[in-house]
Design a protein around this nucleic acid. Sequence first.
DNA 1: AGAATACTTGACAATAATTGTTGGTCTTTC
DNA 2: GAAAGACCAACAATTATTGTCAAGTATTCT
Lengths: 149, 149
Amino acid sequence: MLKLSTKGQYGVRAMFEVARNYGKGTTTIKEISERQDVSVSYLEQLLNRLRRAGLVDSVKGPGGGYVLTREPAQVTIGDILRVLEGPVAITSCMDPSADGCERVDSCVARLLWKSLGERIEKFLDQITLQELLEEEKNILSGTLRIGRL
Amino acid sequence: MLKLSTKGQYGVRAMFEVARNYGKGTTTIKEISERQDVSVSYLEQLLNRLRRAGLVDSVKGPGGGYVLTREPAQVTIGDILRVLEGPVAITSCMDPSADGCERVDSCVARLLWKSLGERIEKFLDQITLQELLEEEKNILSGTLRIGRL
DNA sequence: AGAATACTTGACAATAATTGTTGGTCTTTC
DNA sequence: GAAAGACCAACAATTATTGTCAAGTATTCT
């Protein structure tokens, strides 16, 4: 239950690859495709949306690719997922773009889903690409984790 | 993103109706159907699975219906959802029934999804039907909430 | 200029999950 | 035995997911 579609998963992993090169240059779709094993065409779709949302910039021509528009510490997982998957909406009655059910006021379940959604969102907005980068360093060096993950 | 299918939503609402009558008698599918506006046939499917999982007992014949097998305070939302929707598995690599990806050890994203899943599960296992019942009382009486929702 | 590299866009197709419905059976109470 | 009610399996419609494909646009290097 509560699955995340591959769109969001790939998106986060793609952004992670771009973040990796932050300050060092661009990251091409081809590189991401190879490192993360996702098709070039599909990544194009995803990065395009992330660009239009202002999370990355693209540079054309040889030596081109994608770059973050802000530091990894300023990009949360929530930012990425909201662009690709829309807002957290456990139930359709929590979806701002859908029309609510008429039972709204007396619905106990609604409170439950609302509360869960808020907790999820809080978590996703707390974790940044910077933290993923540090986490990876720790994994590779075998260091004990202290972070929020 | 992170939607819960109607199966789980209806299931929780159905169990809530059964919990409402706890200690007072059985609850028929027809009653649930009318109060929660879900088709009889669909509810049959859901309650059947909840029965086979041991969360409710069924009584056939006139005056029959469903009853909780334990007190509302002993049934968590997580219990219900796991029966109807399977375990929390944000990504397929977190699904115990699927085979993991080969990248397991070095995958940073994996830690992220694992951590999120654990938090969600903790929350769902913390909220019981009893709490929903109390919550409803509060809503109806206009009382200020103090609970975990 | 020409070639290489890479991004852009829209259409569309295969697959899988969701969301139920239909139609019938079995059991118990009155 | 008739009505109330649970039980069960099959399957069909719809929607979401998960991509691919093809044709084009832009930029830079040599």
